[in-house]
Design a protein around this nucleic acid. Structure first.
Lengths: 201, 201
DNA sequence: AATATCATACATACTGGTTGGTATGTCAGT
DNA sequence: ACTGACATACCAACCAGTATGTATGATATT
């Protein structure tokens, strides 16, 4: 195995490209993102990009599959995995939701891209929809386990409730982004906490 | 006063341009909208556009102020204006929410544009944010009047509740758009109806 | 009433810069 | 020597914006 990093590190180059693309897309949208800006941010040239990816669209797909999917995994799915009390876990996740100006003004990377690209490109839409499905599925599974553990009310439908949570969560993030006002988001998270408490068995 | 429409109808031309721009922006986003497509749809040429508007950006601003603002007014504010029981009125509005494929896949014009343009252009953001503020304000006022009329519970905060309703409503529309599945939206409206019923005095 | 005047309301042709994509070159490592 | 991993130079298309031309219709003038 190689110890020192090779001068030419294809894996790292790919990652740098995807991370740079993620940042640019997060701030400008996919259509608004300039390849040159992505390359400059990644510190590579066009040759590297087109060596690793088929083009801008393929890079966008890779960003969804690798960067955005991981964010959802880390923030939501991992903390909910096989947990005893999902209400507590969900409350913790809400507490971790950033309310800095940068995050409030930027919105949710997943939803941003979904709203922009879903109607335009089926490849984007399918990948983004899959992340939403996994997200809601993870919340749903956790709630069901909580019902078995008698931590969550049994008279609610886990999937409907999970969908409701995700929809409201994303809705507040969107509102706060447009208003550019963290108070909207903070108030929303408070409302969601109240809702979560109402789900306890 | 002139009876027959004049060959050159500036007011109508402006409206045609704004409506065409609205449709194109609704389907492709603002950045993704081609001026040529807008002009073709409006049936006018570039000369007309730049005679009536300063450019693409100004046309976008006009679309928000005239087309999108009117949609919100007609769908939400008018039915809620000075109504006796806001819960009934809100339920009626939810029933009017379209669940056709075109509407589900297209999402909410207001939120679509807000998510795309808010971080990019302060002129867009301010105008869009104002519509959201009016929207939430209208729901809020109706709820407060309902509290006075003893149709709405007094232990809720009208503004927080209105914001919650709008956030959840928009969140479901966004989810359904990405999933391209009207069942998501139908299920969401059902959840919102349950929530509304829980607000009755 | 007929005509001249003139600003409005467009249409057409053109341009300059941007942008995604390509073709080619080169160097590192095996 | 040869393939993978880039860098550089170039290109063609697109697209917002502009410059210019022209016709319409209202108003002023005689």
């Amino acid at each position: 195995m190689s110890v020192s990093a090779p001068r030419r590190a294809p894996v790292q180059t790919r990652e740098r490209l995807m991370n740079a693309a993620f940042e640019e897309v997060y701030h400008n949208g996919f259509q608004g993102s300039d390849l040159k800006a992505i390359l400059a941010r990644a510190g590579v040239t066009k040759g590297a990009l087109y060596h690793h990816f088929d083009g801008k669209e393929a890079l966008g797909h890779a960003v969804i599959e690798h960067v955005i999917a991981r964010i959802t995994q880390d923030k939501w799915l991992a903390p909910l995995d096989d947990v005893d009390d999902p209400i507590d876990a969900l409350l913790g996740i809400l507490d971790d939701t950033g309310t800095s100006d940068a995050e409030v003004n930027g919105g949710c990377p997943l939803n941003n891209l979904a709203q922009e690209m879903s109607p335009l490109d089926e490849g984007f839409r399918r990948r983004l929809s899959e992340i939403f499905t996994n997200w809601i599925g993870g919340v749903s599974d956790a709630l069901r386990l909580g019902q078995i553990n008698e931590k969550v009310r049994n008279d609610i439908d886990a999937r409907d409730t999970a969908t409701y949570l995700v929809a409201t969560y994303e809705g507040y993030i969107s509102l706060a982004k447009t208003a550019q006002d963290s108070r909207v988001l903070i108030s929303g998270m408070k409302q969601l906490r109240l809702y979560l408490e109402s789900l306890r068995a």
